[in-house]
Simulated assay, not measured.
Amino acid sequence: MKLPPPDSELGKLMATLPQTGAVDWIGLRPKRDVAMNEVVEVVAETGAGLVGDRYSGGSGKRGITLIQAEHLPVIATLSGHASVEPATLRRNLVVSGIPLIALKGRRFRVGEVVLEGTDSCDPCSRMEAALGPGGYNAMRGHGGLCARILQGGTIRRGDAVVALDITDSIA
C-alpha cells in the first residue's frame, strides 16, 4: 500500500493515532483443521512467522494475523451470536485500543517485535462453519490485518501495540 507523503495533509492525518493499543489474546494454529491454542506468549521469527503456528516458515507476508478486539462484538451481532470467542476467528492476536486499519502499510511494534502491516486479513469460507450461515459476510470488513515480522522476539499478552514513525512505512 502506497501511503501519501508524510508532509501532506492526508499523510499527517494518517500518522496521527489517538493512543497505543494492547495485546489482549494470543492464539496459535498448530495445523490445518484443528482448534486454536491460546497462549500467554509466543516467539515471532523474522521473515517467517510464529513458532508453533502452521504458517511459521512461510513467505512472511502473512507471518502473523491480528484482529481488533472492538470488532468481536460487531462480528457476534452480525452473525447472530451473543459473543464470539477469539479462537473461533482464527487470528493470532486480538488487539484493543488502536485502529488496526491505520497500521496497514506501516511498521509498528508489538512488545519487542517489529511488524509491517501487509494486507487486510479477509475472512475465509471456514467462517460459515464457525459462525453459521452468513458468518463469512459477518466478518467482511472486520477480519483484521496480516503482517510481516521484520524484527523477531517474544510477544506477550498485555504488550503495547505502537505505530512507528510514518517515515518507516513501506512503499
Rank of each mutant, 00 (worst) to 15 (best):
V23Y: 03
P30T: 13
E38A: 15
A130L: 10
P30M: 09
G80C: 12
G158P: 04
K2Q: 12
P86R: 08
P86V: 12
A35M: 10
S125V: 14
I26V: 10
R109H: 02
S83N: 08
E85P: 00
R106W: 06
D159T: 08
G111I: 11
R62V: 14
R29P: 00
T154Q: 02
L13A: 12
G105F: 01
R62T: 14
G111Q: 10
V39Q: 13
P6T: 11
I26D: 04
M139K: 04
M139T: 09
S56G: 00
M127I: 00
L13V: 14
N37I: 15
G117Q: 01
I101Q: 10
P18E: 12
V40M: 13
K12T: 10
N37L: 15
P86M: 08
M36Y: 02
A87C: 08
A130W: 01
S79Q: 12
V110M: 02
E41K: 11
C124Y: 07
A22D: 00
L3C: 05
R156K: 15
G21H: 03
D53N: 10
L164W: 04
N37R: 13
A69W: 10
I26M: 06
P86L: 09
V113R: 02
P73Q: 07
V51D: 04
Y136I: 14
P18C: 02
L10F: 05
D168I: 00
L150H: 03
I166C: 03
G58P: 01
L164V: 09
K12H: 08
V113F: 01
R62S: 12
R54I: 07
A147W: 11
G97W: 05
P4D: 08
G52L: 04
W25F: 15
L164R: 07
T154M: 05
M14W: 08
I26R: 02
G58R: 14
G158A: 10
N92K: 03
C121R: 08
P30N: 07
R91G: 08
L115V: 06
P6G: 00
V162A: 15
A160W: 01
L13K: 14
E38F: 03
L150E: 14
L89V: 15
G49P: 03
P133C: 04
G144A: 06
P6V: 15
D33I: 00
L28S: 03
A160E: 14
G80P: 14
A82T: 14
T118I: 04
M127W: 01
Q151R: 09
G135Y: 02
V74E: 13
D159P: 11
M139S: 04
P73M: 05
T77H: 13
E112Y: 02
L50Y: 07
L103R: 05
A15G: 15
R126Y: 05
E45T: 15
G141C: 02
C121G: 03
G97S: 10
N92Y: 02
R109A: 11
T118L: 02
G63Q: 06
E9Q: 07
L13N: 03
G135C: 04
V74T: 15
R90Y: 08
I26Y: 06
